[in-house]
């Protein structure tokens, strides 16, 4: 067992737990913060994404001893922050969520990218968000959200789908 102290959503917290307890379990079971989801528990699906010192990280891969002295922000705080509103709106309006299970993790990634001083362009954002799996949407709505939130690739205007059902 170790004693750790860290900041959780801006508040200092202390915990005594095994050194190898996963942050995902600490959040979900010890603090009742369940927005981070256990999808694979091996860092492949992104459903448990949190911000560790303001950078996205999979909570399933972080052990208690690694978070001592660090700052952890979870979706519960980020979804109440007006700064993430454009990302949440873009997903809701673009059809970027269906069952919604991947959504907190997806927002954590996209909101981080969107709030960077120099945000990536849309193709780069797609690449950076590809560690967040979604099994429902076919990523159609997520692509629409990304196109709304991030600039098109420099020098190459986005090629719209040529509609074939349009009367025009």
């Amino acid at each position: 067992m170790i004693d750790i102290e860290f900041h959780l959503n801006g508040e200092p917290v202390r915990l005594r737990c095994p050194a190898d307890r996963r942050l995902l379990d600490i959040l979900r079971e010890d603090f009742g913060l369940t927005a981070a989801k256990p999808g694979c528990a091996i860092g492949r699906c992104g459903a448990c994404m949190i911000w560790l010192d303001d950078a996205p990280a999979n909570a399933c891969l972080l052990l208690a001893l690694r978070i001592h002295g660090r700052s952890v922000r979870t979706y519960e705080a980020v979804c109440r922050d007006p700064a993430s509103q454009p990302v949440r709106d873009a997903l809701a309006e673009g059809g970027g969520l269906q069952c919604g299970y991947c959504t907190p993790g997806m927002v954590m990634t996209l909101a981080h990218l969107h709030q960077l001083p120099e945000p990536p362009d849309a193709p780069a954002a797609r690449e950076l968000a590809s560690a967040n799996l979604c099994r429902c949407t076919g990523y159609g709505g997520i692509r629409r959200a990304i196109e709304r939130l991030f600039e098109p690739a420099e020098g190459s205007a986005a090629t719209p789908i040529r509609p074939c059902g349009d009367p025009a």
Binding site: P163, C164, G165
Partner: peptide, 24 residues
């Protein structure tokens, strides 16, 4: 006439449960 992709996108509105899901 058929609805194009763009027309379907233009007619979409958020899911009724989007706010709840997005609130975690």
């Amino acid at each position: 006439p058929p609805l194009s992709h763009a027309q379907l996108v233009a007619r979409m509105r958020p899911r009724p449960d989007a706010a709840e899901r997005l609130a975690g």
